[in-house]
Design a protein around this nucleic acid. Structure first.
Lengths: 223, 223
DNA sequence: CGATAAAAATTGGCTTTACCAATAGGTGAG
DNA sequence: CTCACCTATTGGTAAAGCCAATTTTTATCG
């Protein structure tokens, strides 16, 4: 694992590059294939590599996928609550929205706009709506031009996705939600950092409230 | 991996618990031992499990260790810069300090105080100082009573540790640094959230500046 | 000559077997 | 009763073989 890691740190391996086959790596580094596989497995688990059966192993390029990532396991372990999750999002994403407003390029704005359009198109499909909701927030994080913050937002949004995916209901008012997103988008487009922070804060507060009431309904039903 | 994960999610496995031996797990789940090991390895890599040679495999209880964690690999991959790291810390830790001021218990305060004492004791040992510096910041995150935020702070501080461990010099003014920490600590102890945020912000800004000048000296020396 | 389908080679995934290394706990000597 | 040693348990590594998915090549047909 350390040998591969140093290859990446030295810049010999760039994102998207393909690694030599396991059998060849084993020969080159003079260690057995199972050991090679053990190291690769760890790096895959950490999201640094992606293995494709029959094709090869590649250095990760894009952001982590929506499914089952890093923090999600720790979520099960420590039992993260919704309140804690929204608090974390407030801490992170409000400031990130401010940075995005200061730095967003034309490409970033285009991506944001596209995701909002997708949200409109998915107003009656909660699953799809959730996906594009999260993609919108990730796009804002990308627009902050700080890959560390972008990665953190990606991780908490993965937890969010995992927790909401199964239980999302139709009780939520998506129309209002998408309008809040619009407001955040406009603030970022006009490079108004303060308004971006304020609108993101309100958006998250409202979403938090909406999920709380929805959760209340569910637990009521259980009775 | 999924089977173990569900055991944890269901609460059948609590932090600190010991898992059955690999050979026994293999029999119970009717899969080969290397496959068992593959799954365990992934969970170890993600910080959910800890394997102890000769003893057994345990569910992680405490925070991740200082060495080589999650984000550090992504740091190598995406080439995080110091400026980006301090920006991320500003976004995260300033707000976290505010939450800590609102919620810190007597135990939290005791831990914080201990770490400051350790910092005083290590004024002429940069390596030790760095360790307790980071532990102090993690203790603040723990005092926020939000495990998500605590985990995020732990991850960025691990990156910090990895990047500074080798290159830390004696040029840094540790005396001034520890006094800044004192100020943050006092604000948290008196439950003054606003002052906690302000002092944390200034502390990070100063540390950032100090590291910048130190970095400048290093690159000068290279010439 | 081009396109398409089949086959061969490449590559990651899994299993079995065997042995090494570190730790823990029991056991006997003092 | 204490301490050192020895043994059994447990995670770590290695080797060889086969399966499954993918890619690439090749051959066949239009």
């Amino acid at each position: 694992m350390e040998q591969i890691r140093s290859l990446i740190a030295n810049g010999d391996l760039r994102p998207g590059d393909r690694l030599p086959a396991e059998r060849e790596l084993a020969k080159q580094l003079s260690i057995s294939r199972p050991s090679i596989r053990a190291g690769l497995r760890m790096l895959v688990a950490r999201g640094v590599l992606r293995a494709k059966h029959g094709s090869g192993t590649y250095v990760a390029d894009g952001p982590p996928s929506l499914d089952s990532e890093q923090l999600s396991l720790l979520a099960d372990l420590h039992g993260f609550t919704f309140d804690q999750m929204f608090e974390a999002r407030q801490v992170l994403e409000v400031q990130v929205a401010g940075l995005a407003a200061e730095r967003a390029t034309a490409e970033h704005l285009a991506t944001l706009s596209e995701e909002i359009a997708e949200m409109y198109a998915a107003l009656d499909d909660p699953q799809q709506y959730l996906i594009h909701d999260i993609k919108f927030h990730r796009a804002i994080a990308a627009a902050s031009e700080n890959p560390i913050l972008a990665t953190l937002v990606e991780m908490v949004s993965a937890v969010m996705y995992d927790q909401r995916r199964e239980t999302i209901g139709r009780a939520h008012d998506f129309k209002e939600s998408v309008e809040m997103h619009q407001r955040v988008y406009r603030a970022i487009r006009s490079h108004n950092a303060e308004e971006a922070r304020r609108s993101m804060h309100e958006h998250l507060a409202l979403a938090h409230k909406a999920y709380r009431t929805e959760e209340g309904k569910l637990s009521k039903k259980k009775k």
